[in-house]
Design a protein around this nucleic acid. Structure first.
Length: 203
DNA sequence: ACGGGGATGGGCT
DNA sequence: GCCCATCCCCGTA
């Protein structure tokens, strides 16, 4: 399947968040090629959104990449421990993004398993198998995504997203996870997930 | 099934 | 000095 092109990312964050479901996130390095199917996302709507890092037009060294053109990666450190992977959307300076919250393993499971647990896939417990990349922090570990992957062009050749078969998906929405501080924005139904998929995060 | 807490660092006031 | 777009482990039931 073809790589998603620039135009895909230049649209509204809510549209991109929904359309990313079912698509395949690919990380390719010299050592591995790891692929996961996107099953859960959240949209963050730039300056107006109190849950967004770019709320109020905040521009700092951390948020700077959010002001880049749609189709740029935004990876940040959370709780001093984990990374979260986002896709910047819309034209330059809109500062909107989509957080990828969960993946279903597709390819390179042996590498995911090594990166997540340091063991071979055959040794994974059923629980560990489900836990490979069913959360924003976990998927970054499983795909080897860290601060080195911040600000990359997703239309390039190391970190990108492939289109997928046009299968019918049962898409559900809900409020976003862990943004209690966001006041009137905390209940906006801007989380999207594939209903019934067992790799959707527990929240 | 839950609920509480610790890890750990960078961003921001 | 406090706040996190998280995860895992350990209690109590």
């Amino acid at each position: 399947m073809a790589k998603l092109n620039r135009d895909f990312y230049l649209r509204d964050a809510l549209v991109v968040a929904k359309d990313l479901l079912g698509k395949q996130l690919v990380h390719e390095t010299q050592d591995y090629r790891i692929v996961g199917r996107i099953v859960e996302t959240e949209a963050y709507l730039g300056p107006i959104d109190k849950a967004s890092h770019a709320y109020g037009g905040r521009r700092t060294s951390r948020t700077e990449v959010m002001y880049n053109i749609g189709g740029t990666s935004y990876v940040y450190l959370i709780y001093g421990v984990y990374h979260c992977f986002n896709v910047v959307t819309e034209p330059k300076d809109k500062a909107s993004a989509v957080l990828v919250r969960a993946l279903e393993p597709v390819e390179g499971v042996e590498h995911m398993s090594k990166l997540r647990y340091g063991i071979e896939p055959s040794l994974l417990s059923p629980k560990q198998k489900l836990g490979l990349c069913n959360g924003p922090g976990k998927l970054c570990i499983a795909l080897g995504i860290g601060k080195a992957e911040n600000g990359l062009n997703l239309c390039g050749s190391t970190l990108y997203i492939n289109d997928a078969k046009n299968e019918p998906l049962n898409i559900k929405t809900s409020p976003r996870i862990n943004i209690d501080y966001a006041e009137e924005y905390k209940d906006k139904p801007w989380r999207f997930y594939i209903e019934g998929n067992k790799y959707v995060s527990k929240g």
